[in-house]
Amino acid sequence: MTFYCIRGENLSKSYRVLGRNNQKQLYRDLSLAIRPGELVGLFGQSGCGKSTLGDILLGLKKPDRGDVFWNEINISQAGQKKRKELRHFYQKIHQEPGSSFPPQQRIEDALHDIVRLRQPDSDHDSCTNKIASTIQELHLEKELLNRYPDQLSGGEIQRFALARVLLNNPVFLVADEPTSRLDYSVQAKIIRLLMQIAAKNKMGVLLISHDHALLEVACRRIVILDQKHPEM
């Protein structure tokens, strides 16, 4: 049996439409599994519930029906302790560049917080080294660490967001339209980096996008969310 780093089984989700008294079904009985190191694309028009599916897999939202398995453990049945243990292996990158970083903190401090959370006994120097090696992998310069999020370009800040995620040693990442607000030239760079890192770190990635051409280049498998008939 293949090992999946994340698996959703028979997921259904609907939401209440404001003003009218009816439920809108986003998807019914949707199943999805991702292997370590695999990039899976999730395609759909805006408003079809792409981001919601990502949030359900990450345990940020609850599905109406169905189960999510992290490392083959059902998270709705797992205890609080087990969930907490696995929590940081499941990460997300947001669409809006820079929104993963608090505006009043320097990038370096934000990254330090993450390293210290993962390895509480590490000293300042080993934290700095760890950050330095991670950002080097993403072709970022050390000088940029001193800046605040709004002093960086969209491409730089999205790569820092990727660095932030990597410091958590993730096994699975939801990249929610990570480049839709960026230029094509920057997008190319970031998606290529994401592909390399996923393969190298054996990290499963769900790449959410409304750009089919992008997914065709980046992913071998693409899930298309249609309002009525989700097909695989």
Binding site: L60, K84, R87, H94, S100, F101, L117, N168
Partner: peptide, 12 residues
Amino acid sequence: RPYVESGILAGF
């Protein structure tokens, strides 16, 4: 804001 969500995901 997303950075609070990121903080929750990181396990703070």
